[in-house]
Simulated assay, not measured.
Amino acid sequence: MDPRFVGIPELTGVPRIAVVIDVMRAFTVAAWAFSRGVEKIVLAATEDEALALKEHHPGRLALKDGAPAAGFDLVNSPALLRSADIGGRTLVQKTTAGTVGALAVADAPLILCASFVVAGPTARLLRGAGVPGPVTFVITGEDGRAEEDLACAEYIARRGATGAGVGAAPYLDRARNSRAAAELSTGVRRGSHPDDVALCLELDRFPFAMTARREDSAMVLRPTTVPRTVVGPRGPGKRRHH
């Protein structure tokens, strides 16, 4: 694997494989939504588009970051989502970083959306594919400078290249001490919960990766089961779920 780490403004051309990182909180929230039984997540470019997609498809739920707003059913908080009754529903998600990053690489042949809660399965998927060429990790926060996203991307890249024997503590510490974590902990970011940071730092909480692709005219995110035993470029190996 040849990892490249870029911010959204630095994207040029169409990556062969894109891993879009948003730890705090879009793709932690997405993983929680799937764990709560959401069937799929439609990624919207604007809040108006999110509301239109909800209106045109009765039964969908709309989610945004920031404070609650008219027409939106949920906010971008894993702690607030963990008790929501959303099983079997379709979620429309619009955030300022994660969904923007995914839509920016919409033409890539393989798009994975990730955070620490699905880091292991994402790395196994990359390793199992035996990726020979460059993998573009899109650091969505702070124009590519978000420490929590960069730490997660570097962890996934290293674990995808070498297997499960990678210590996660230094990467999680970087995320824990990030600007985003501080803003969430102190309530600077609206639509948050005191447990959000801790939930965003739960390594491998869920056993699936998340794959985005075009379905008709929309970008749709779905969970992808990843076997714990994969065959990569170095042969078969066991992967333990933490």
Rank of each mutant, 00 (worst) to 15 (best):
E154H: 01
G160S: 03
E183L: 05
A151S: 08
A209I: 03
T229M: 08
A161C: 12
G165L: 15
V166S: 04
R4V: 13
R82P: 02
P15H: 06
L172N: 06
A157V: 00
L81M: 11
N177E: 15
L53Y: 12
E202Y: 04
V131Q: 06
D173F: 09
R174Y: 01
V75H: 02
A161I: 11
G130Y: 05
V230S: 04
L51N: 04
T140S: 08
R124P: 00
S217H: 12
G120V: 08
P121W: 15
A104Q: 05
A108W: 05
T225A: 13
G120I: 07
T136D: 15
G128E: 10
G130N: 11
V230D: 03
A209K: 14
K94I: 14
G120C: 10
P132A: 14
A212L: 05
M24A: 04
A67Y: 08
S178I: 04
A26Q: 06
D216N: 09
R213I: 04
P194A: 02
A198E: 14
V118K: 14
R234V: 07
R60E: 12
F27H: 00
S185C: 11
F34N: 10
V188N: 04
G165H: 14
T12M: 14
G88D: 07
G71R: 14
P58V: 08
L103Q: 06
V138E: 08
V166Y: 11
G37E: 00
V75C: 11
